[in-house]
Amino acid sequence: MKRRDFVRICTSALGLVAVTPALLAEDSRARRLYQRVKLVDGGGAPLKASALKPQAPQLFHYPYAGTPCFLVRLNGSIAGDVPLKTADDRRYVWTGGIGPGHSIVAFSAICPHQLSYSSKHQSFINYQATPSPVAHRADVITCCAHYSVFDPGQGGKVLDGPAPQPLTTILLEHDTGTDELYAIGTLGGELFEDFFNAYRTELIEEFGRGVSHQEATGTTMTLPVEKYAAQIFKC
């Protein structure tokens, strides 16, 4: 598997939103750039950031063809500067929302506890716009397999439950000229290697042999979660 440490932060001509001074203090191993991949809808047309409905989660695959991620436009502006750390104590600073009103965030849809993920059959890990009985609040990502609760407005921070680290952030880029969105890398602890080990047979069933661990390139299809997963579990 190709795993690249962060190389340069200013590769992109568009630049990243919110490069804070705090970033300089972070563990460089917490941030990795992958292929720059454009988010497109089910028909292949580029997703427009301004057209995303608040609190309506979307699902795309990144940085590999078989690793699912959530894209959510939250209510209001989502500030960054959230200090977080991985299970093995690597510190990083979450950079907040991007796009219109700094409201769009993205996270890997793989639970850092026992790797429950969004497959086409079912998704136990989900964004919940309405109050969750487990979390006692709304606007959270819950994993209903073992009741972990994450805050998408705080970099996927663990609010409750057994998860040992925040959700992996997917780094996004917003082209203000075209209003298009790109996924460019990850921030925080990655679980892809464990994920590929744990789901060999399931990933072959869903994507075919040799597909799921290919790095995503070009475009990635982004669908409303309920259109992607046949069963969605909230708790």
């Binding site: 639970c111 506890h113 026992q114 790797l115 429950s116 079912q122 136990f124 009985p133 487990v134 209903c144 397999a145 073992h146 464990d194 080990n197 744990a198 069963q231 579990f233 909230k234 708790c235």
Partner: peptide
């Protein structure tokens, strides 16, 4: 402690996913 004593099919599926998660933890 939190009790969830009203059964439903979602919790039934979560029951299985709970187990799969821990088998993954111990065996993969």
């Amino acid at each position: 402690a939190q009790l969830f004593e009203k059964w439903d099919p979602a919790r039934g599926q979560a029951n299985l996913e709970w187990a799969r998660g821990l088998y993954r933890d111990m065996f993969t």
